[in-house]
Design a protein around this nucleic acid. Sequence first.
RNA 1: GCGGAUGUGGCGGAAUUGGCAGACGCGCUGGACUUAGGAUCCAGUGUCGCAAGACGUAAGGGUUCAACCCCCUUCAUCCGCACCA
Length: 820
Amino acid sequence: MDKYIPQEIEKKWQDQWESANSFHTDEDPSKKKYYALEMFPYPSGNLHMGHVRNYSIGDVVARFKKMRGFNVLHPMGFDAFGMPAENAAIEHGIHPRDWTLKNIENMIRQQKSMGLSYDWNRKVETCQPDYYRWTQWLFELFYERGLAYKKEASVNWCDNCGTVLANEQVIDGRCWRCDGEVHKKNLAQWFFKITDYAEELLADLSKLDGWPERVKTMQENWIGKSEGCEFHFDIEGFDEKLSVYTTRPDTAFGITFVVLAAEHPLVEKLIAGRENESEIRAFISETLKMSEMERTSAASEKKGIFTGAFAISPFTGKKIPIWISNYVLYNYGTGAVMGVPAHDERDWMFASKYGIDKIIVIDRPEKSLKLDEMDNAYIEPGVLINSGEFNGIPNEDAKSKIVDWLESKNLGSRKINYKLRDWLISRQRYWGAPIPVIYCDKCGEQLVPKDQLPVLLPDDVEFKQGALSPLATSKTFSDCKCPKCGGHARRETDTMDTFICSSWYYLRYADPKNSSEPFEKSKVNYWNPVDQYIGGIEHAILHLLYSRFFTKVLRDAKLLDFDEPFTNLLTQGMVIKDGAKMSKSKGNVVSPEEIIEKYGADTARLFILFAAPVERDLDWSDQGVEGASRFLNRVWRILLQFEDQIKTAQDSYDVSTLNKDEIDLRRILHRTIKKVTEDISDRFMFNTAISSLMELTNAIYGFQDKPLNPNLAREVARNLLIMLAPFVPHISSELWSRIFANEKDVHEQNWCEFDPSAIVEDEIEIVLQINGKVRDRIKIPATLDKDGMEKIARESKFVENKTIVKIICVPKKLINVVVK
RNA sequence: GCGGAUGUGGCGGAAUUGGCAGACGCGCUGGACUUAGGAUCCAGUGUCGCAAGACGUAAGGGUUCAACCCCCUUCAUCCGCACCA
């Protein structure tokens, strides 16, 4: 018997699959389609273990579904635009394109060495003109639909990256990519109007039954819907109105101050000419200097200053002092809030600090509130007091009654607010899809005509750290003709956020070579939505929210006929080692390439699928890898030991010729088929599926030194290899080709079915409990009914001399006798 | 602070509907084969106990004939959000 040498067989099978075009897919309306997709990688140059895990999971799903008869789409591509390529250009003088393409080449080589069942004919690379042409085309579609606009705004700026960032890309006040500090800057930038879809993006989360709850919760929080009302105050001595937004109109009679954000446009008017104007201005500039982080931290101190102006409460007619404070956000609601210290914790702190009045307007049901006994705002439910005609109404009911009142007096109206902001999509970088817009002095902003797309990236640019838009340094790029008047015009020199490229790639896979449109509608409607999407939790908001937005816009544009891009989402856990995420700085990185070279791809895949459930973090263990390798060697040896007998055996045979041990083995086989099938298809429990395959293998070893019916050996080998195939494709193909030499490759076989009659046992072991404690294990006929079981229990020596209170029988499981 | 998750041997983890806790793997111990073993095969391996047995799923309580699983309280760890009025 020859030895299992993965290095030899893996390459052989990879080449064979590639030359046979084994994983090529076409639309086939006669078959049920299945679209398995792993998040495409950024081409950093090398796969890391997170990729290996991601692709191993996806490959099991794709191969399994294929064996179950689905027409499977399983593509791979590269999210190829982005900063690192540009940093390489800055640091090493290599062009981002060359750097990226070289990295892609290496990563494809590594992916191929894993034996993944991708249809490589469908590869997409977002940095290629034949792809970004359609990214630009989609930008124009958004523009034409009023969903892309340019405006001057206070935006997030990362100095390191020399570009603006979307809100979603700012993590704890830092850049998602380089971790550098982000600060605010006023710039004219392009936005996508994702807020138009806020309600649908929120509401449709309920359709996503196949998504993890926590991802949906995160998106829900990010969209941040709140229902309340907006109303306005008159300002004493000014012909101005001051609007505020609140979710607590029921507390409105308790307003004792109003607070403006430092940026609020009214501030300037209100403070002009006050005797302490310079003091107020100093406060404002100090507030504006604070970083976003400091200002929005709930922990930071609430500071404020009185403007000297008064609003008039529409509820009580009283004068309400107008303050400015650092705790009011300008970009949410109206940038101004009402202060009700008795019933809001922030207002309580603020009022306490500056000696502002507090008025209780919601009273506690059990015991009346007294200000001097309170050291906190009262935010529980209660009944309105000090609220004029609304006194005595429970506060929840009062909310809508007071809004009705405001609406009837034309003072305000119901209002829904979202935390979600429009998506800032322009970037002052080179390595991205140029925004296809032309500025003409005469005709204004113009889209590049569709037949002139793509707007190609120029080569004559300078790459400099922190430089503004490298495209602006090109001699040739900016100058152009206005598509409308033909006069001199200039191009937009910003590029698009790479998240735009990745917001539609899963659609392009359906029709990757189309040169007349982004994709053919019928093809996208056949393959999409993605049936199973697999990737890391880090995209819970960013990519997954943007893709949902894109899908909805494209649906409204009638380019496709579904509402959600990803029917089922699996968020894999991280690969960690020694308790920490693998990282160069911690020195705990395990290189996939080295593992594959040493043990083979099958071992790497098997270990990573076996070591932990897919959604949980996986602790890398070199010894665990050894264990996986050991198992494959065991499979290799035991199957080849029976090779000759199996070859001469029959596929259909009379199972009544089997002896008792053989019947047991056959039972284990069919139980394993049942379990593995369920574990893969219903639960994604690959770790337990593999463990039962190990148990089956252990059971075969019981026949290592004793005769095994060749027909059964053949049945076991056939099914074991079919079940192993999605996990460890190479060794499965190799053993299959040796044992079932004149049959098609194991990956072309149908998945196995279990034989229910093989699982049935004549005699089963049940547990006898006395007062819930296990006292005995008894063998009984499987057909024995409750009465029979009870009889056995009564005759048991463990019941002797005891008074039986009750007997509980669970068929096929246990008997519990309650005694005194 | 709010929201979500997790907590089981020396370790990774099983236990699918409330019904034998610890499957499978790692590690460890012993044995076989062997010049040798870091290969392979076999056996053992939750804790205490000579044993019968008792105890045991973060801690405490509850429901139940029966609880890792359901309910209540507390703790720890991780993740997300975090002045959103």
